[in-house]
Computed example of a mutant assay.
Amino acid sequence: MSLPAPLDRADAVVFDAYGTLLDVHSAVQRHAAAIGPQAQALSETWRQKQLEYSWVLSLCGRYAPFWTLTERALDFALAKHPDVDRDLRSGLLEAYRSLDAYAEVPATLDALRRAGLGTAILSNGDTAMLDAAVNAAGLEGRLDAVLSVDPAGTFKTAPRAYDLAPARFGVARERIVFLSSNRWDIAGAAAYGFAPVWVNRTGQPDEYPDLAPVRVIRSLDGLLV
């Protein structure tokens, strides 16, 4: 199978999980009718704070499991949107443990494995939440590894978080293609030395011009083209 760049120079393909393979907004979407007109705003606040908390802790030299940050971020989002029924909290958290995978994910992972490439997740998510999410999405047999940053004790974009992927596969970082829908994560991967591919699902403007991706695609369908 002839592979397009940068896959033609890769030994492994590593994916961010949340927002890249898994739709982080699907948890709120399942409860949208009960939430009402603030559903989208609630979901966006939840995601924004979840990420913000990871960055602040990393800069402070501190760490907490990503599930703890997910709970704290939801509590903030519910406080910011007080018209949303707080009794939905437990249901929203349970839904976050079993987020929907994007439709093209299974076929893309299968194609990469047929091409002889290693496949893995490298995520800020802690081990328990990643295992639950991967199993719920039916991806467990399609990945060689599911890597949480837990052993590194810090979140991406810290280099020692990215260190987990080349250590797992035993290859140079330059031989790993890294995909994320988060532009900040792509910047971190570029600085680290991966071959980063930005999955720009929502057509966001580019940023971090000195830390550019090697490719930009709208969905994982574009990776093998």
Rank of each mutant, 00 (worst) to 15 (best):
L78N: 09
F76L: 10
E104Y: 12
V84S: 08
A27N: 05
D185G: 01
L78K: 07
D185C: 00
N124L: 05
V225M: 10
A137M: 14
S148R: 06
V146H: 06
D131C: 04
E94M: 04
R168T: 09
S123G: 04
V197D: 05
Y96L: 02
L88G: 04
D144G: 03
A10E: 02
P65A: 03
S26H: 05
Q38W: 05
D163L: 00
R89S: 00
A115P: 06
L51E: 03
A137C: 01
A137D: 07
V171L: 13
A12E: 02
S148E: 06
Y63I: 09
L57I: 11
A189D: 07
A107Q: 14
S148D: 02
L57V: 04
V28K: 12
L143G: 09
G91N: 14
T154P: 03
L179S: 10
W46Y: 08
P151M: 00
L51G: 09
P166S: 08
N124G: 06
Q29M: 06
Y162I: 05
P196M: 08
E174W: 11
S98G: 14
H25I: 09
P151S: 07
E94L: 01
A195P: 06
D131T: 15
V214M: 14
A79Y: 05
Y208N: 02
S181N: 07
L88Q: 09
H25Y: 15
I186H: 12
G118M: 08
A79E: 15
G222D: 07
P82N: 00
Q38K: 15
A101F: 09
L112Y: 12
L224I: 07
F76I: 03
S90Y: 04
P82M: 08
A172L: 12
A191L: 04
P37K: 04
F76R: 05
A95T: 14
A39H: 10
F194W: 07
A5I: 03
G138H: 00
E140I: 13
D131V: 15
A95E: 08
E140A: 15
L147A: 14
D126W: 08
Q29E: 10
I35A: 07
R114D: 05
R201T: 11
N182K: 02
G91F: 06
L117H: 13
G138M: 12
E94T: 07
G61L: 02
A120S: 13
A191Y: 05
A195V: 00
G118C: 09
T154A: 01
P151H: 12
T45S: 15
G193P: 09
G203Y: 09
A133W: 06
L42T: 02
L211C: 01
G203N: 11
D150F: 13
L93W: 13
W46H: 03
Q48D: 15
W198A: 01
A64I: 10
P166E: 01
T127D: 01
K156I: 00
A32T: 02
R113W: 14
P159E: 11
T154S: 11
A41T: 13
E52G: 01
D11E: 15
L22I: 02
G118N: 07
R113M: 11
V149F: 13
D16V: 00
P82C: 07
W67R: 14
A187G: 08
T157D: 14
D87Y: 13
D16M: 13
